[in-house]
Structures are given as structure tokens and as C-alpha cells.
């Protein structure tokens, strides 16, 4: 770990690679950072989502739609869905990379993960917009 600084010639990594700071996966800390930023956003957003669900539980369909469609509620729910589905994709990607070893199956799983999360996100956001705009 400290080898490269104490013995500059002992590292196999070239100076250019060290400056780029992208590591063995060539993507740096982007994935880690995305997971943590969405995790942080998820804490208040999912708690707010939970509060909305408790408020509308057991109410008439009209009351439920009116509550979900309220601009402030709709905006919070849409933010929550975007953050949650992004976090889902990042988390499942790690699980797939850990357990699916065949190259073909791994690539297919990663693409399926992206498709699923994109579909969930799009469907959720569209549903809220339709309710909010009075469809």
C-alpha cells in the first residue's frame, strides 16, 4: 500500500495510471459514489414515501389519487422513485458481478438489471405524472 511512495520503482502501476486514479476496474470511484449519494437521498425520500403510503392506506380511491397527485407529494414520490431505481441498479450490479461468473451470462444479467430498473423507474414516474395531471 505504501510501497509506491517509499519505493517509487516497486509499483507495477505506471505514473500515468496513478494520476488517472481509475484503479483496476477503470471506472474509479464513480460506482461507489453513485451508490452512496442515492443511499443518502433514499433515507428521507423513502421515509416520506412510507408516510404517504400510511396516510392513504385504506382511504377511498378518490382520496388516494388526490393525495398522490398533490404537486408536493408527487414531486417527492418522483424523486424517491428515481433515487431508489438508480440505487437498485447499482446494488444489483455488484451482486451480479459477485455471483455470475460466465462472461455471457454476466453481461446479459447486467443488461437485464439496467432494463428492469429503467422500466420500474419509468413506469412509476409515468403513473404519478398521470395521476397528478388528472388522467
Amino acid at each position: 500500500m505504501s510501497g509506491s511512495s517509499e519505493f517509487p520503482g516497486s509499483s507495477l502501476r505506471t505514473p500515468r495510471r496513478r494520476v488517472a486514479g481509475l484503479g483496476a476496474a477503470h471506472s474509479g470511484t464513480h460506482h461507489f459514489w453513485l451508490q452512496r449519494v442515492t443511499a443518502l437521498a433514499n433515507v428521507p425520500l423513502t421515509l416520506a414515501f412510507l408516510a404517504v403510503l400510511i396516510c392513504v392506506a385504506g382511504e377511498s380511491p378518490e382520496r388516494v389519487l388526490a393525495t398522490i397527485g398533490h404537486p408536493v407529494v408527487a414531486i417527492i414520490l418522483i424523486l424517491a422513485i428515481i433515487s431508489i431505481t438508480t440505487h437498485m441498479r447499482a446494488g444489483m450490479q455488484v451482486v451480479i458481478e459477485d455471483y455470475v461468473h460466465g462472461e455471457g451470462a454476466k453481461v446479459l444479467s447486467l443488461v437485464a438489471n439496467t432494463f428492469f430498473c429503467a422500466a420500474m423507474g419509468c413506469a412509476g414516474v409515468f403513473a404519478i405524472l398521470k395521476i397528478s395531471f388528472g388522467g
Binding site: V64, I68, I81, M120, A123, G124, A127, I131
Partner: peptide, 13 residues
């Protein structure tokens, strides 16, 4: 589980 949540929202819409 998120799938269940999205199903609920799409059904409501």
C-alpha cells in the same frame, strides 16, 4: 419488492 410498489402505482393510474 419495488416491483410491487410500482404495480400499485400503475394500477392506481
Amino acid at each position: 419488492g419495488t416491483f410491487l410498489l410500482i404495480v400499485w402505482l400503475v394500477a392506481a393510474a
